[in-house]
Computed example of a mutant assay.
Amino acid sequence: MPASGTTPRTGLVDVLLLAVAVVWGSTYLAAKDLVGTRTVIAILGLRFLITAVIMVPICVRRLRRASRREVGTGLLLGVILAGIMTFETFGIAGTSATNAGLIISLTIVMTPILENLVSRSWLPPSFFVAAVVAVVGVALLATGSSLRAPSLGDLLVLVAAAVRAVHVTAMHRLSAKQRFDSLNLTCLQLSVCAVVFCAASPFAGDSVTTVAARLSPAQWGDLVYLAAICTVFAFFVQMWAVRTTSPSRVSLLLGTEPVWALAVGVTLGGDRIGYAGVIGAALIVGGTNWGRRIERAHRERDTVRPAQEAPGRGVPAEHSERA
């Protein structure tokens, strides 16, 4: 889907991003049931191999028309994505599903900070207040879920959150103003991950073939869900949305992910949550929604301001001379 001057309805973008947040919130429990320290890379290899099988037949004709720059961008983003998945999945293997879902949400703070450092155009202070509210919510959720002292798994998920912020920002900077096909970029990223993880699996634990042979039908079901819904659908929506809005907005909406991770953990995983957890969930939702409104208003002002100035004169358009 080539980028165009027509911006999709904001409501549709928001709804689809929230759907991704729900889906991603469920991945931690599904992944936790699949991975061990020796099977992380193999499971990732199988997951992304399934995504490649789904995506490549759909995109093969589109990819033939892709420019070198489009292919190069997709390959680079795929390498960054492979880094995210490696840190995140090793982290999940070494911590609880609920902890992983909470810690990864710190991306909502890291992304706007990184984006502002790159663009040198800071968001209003109130945005960071909203982000702090969301982070406090994460802390309360963690308290309500009896978060233990940070383990190696927790730290690896924290690194994954930082790399995810880099991925979202790079995605926007490299593709937002280009006539790239979002489907192609998604296919290239997921295919890079498939190649990297399948090739690396024999050297990082059990191989892809060994793990595939001993998966149960239920585990294959989890794997297909992770591949088709949590990867193909989710990453395409993220790719499409970040090209039509801003990295900060995407991260704020995806910042509700820990609420859904907690909901899945409580209803399906047997986790318990107290009053602090309920308050924390409310703060995350409130903080992300508040921040989203601030970011949207700031972005709209930045869009309107250049249009009100005459080209090269720095004065309001209504006072400029007509050509």
Rank of each mutant, 00 (worst) to 15 (best):
A3L: 15
S4I: 07
S4F: 03
T6V: 14
T7C: 05
L17K: 00
V20M: 10
A21Y: 01
A21S: 07
G25K: 07
T27R: 03
Y28H: 09
A30E: 11
A31L: 05
K32C: 08
D33Q: 10
L34N: 02
V35S: 02
V35P: 00
A42I: 14
I43Q: 04
G45K: 01
L46H: 04
R47A: 12
R47E: 07
I50P: 00
A52D: 12
V56P: 12
V56S: 01
R61V: 03
G72A: 10
I80R: 11
G83E: 02
I84F: 11
T86S: 13
F87H: 08
E88A: 09
T89M: 13
I103C: 08
I103M: 06
I104P: 02
S105C: 11
V109N: 01
T111S: 10
P112A: 12
L114T: 05
L114G: 01
E115R: 15
V118K: 02
S119L: 08
R120Y: 04
S121Q: 14
W122H: 14
P125E: 04
S126P: 01
F127C: 04
V133D: 03
V136H: 09
G137S: 13
V138I: 14
V138E: 04
S145E: 00
S145A: 15
R148N: 14
L156S: 04
V157G: 01
V157C: 04
A160F: 09
R164Y: 15
A165P: 02
H167S: 10
H167C: 11
T169E: 12
T169A: 15
A170K: 03
L174S: 09
S175W: 02
A176R: 13
S182R: 13
S182E: 06
C187G: 11
S191Q: 00
V195E: 05
V196P: 00
A199T: 03
S201G: 12
T209I: 14
T209Q: 15
V211G: 02
A213P: 02
W220N: 10
L226K: 01
A227K: 05
V232F: 03
V232W: 09
F233K: 06
F235E: 07
F235M: 06
V237W: 00
V237H: 05
Q238P: 03
V242I: 14
S246A: 11
E257N: 06
V264A: 10
V266P: 07
L268I: 11
G270K: 10
G270Y: 05
R272V: 05
Y275H: 05
Y275G: 13
G277W: 00
G277V: 00
I279W: 05
G280F: 04
A281S: 13
A282K: 12
V285T: 08
G286M: 02
G291H: 04
A297M: 10
H298L: 03
V304C: 02
R305Y: 05
E309A: 15
A317V: 15
H319C: 03
E321W: 09
A323V: 13
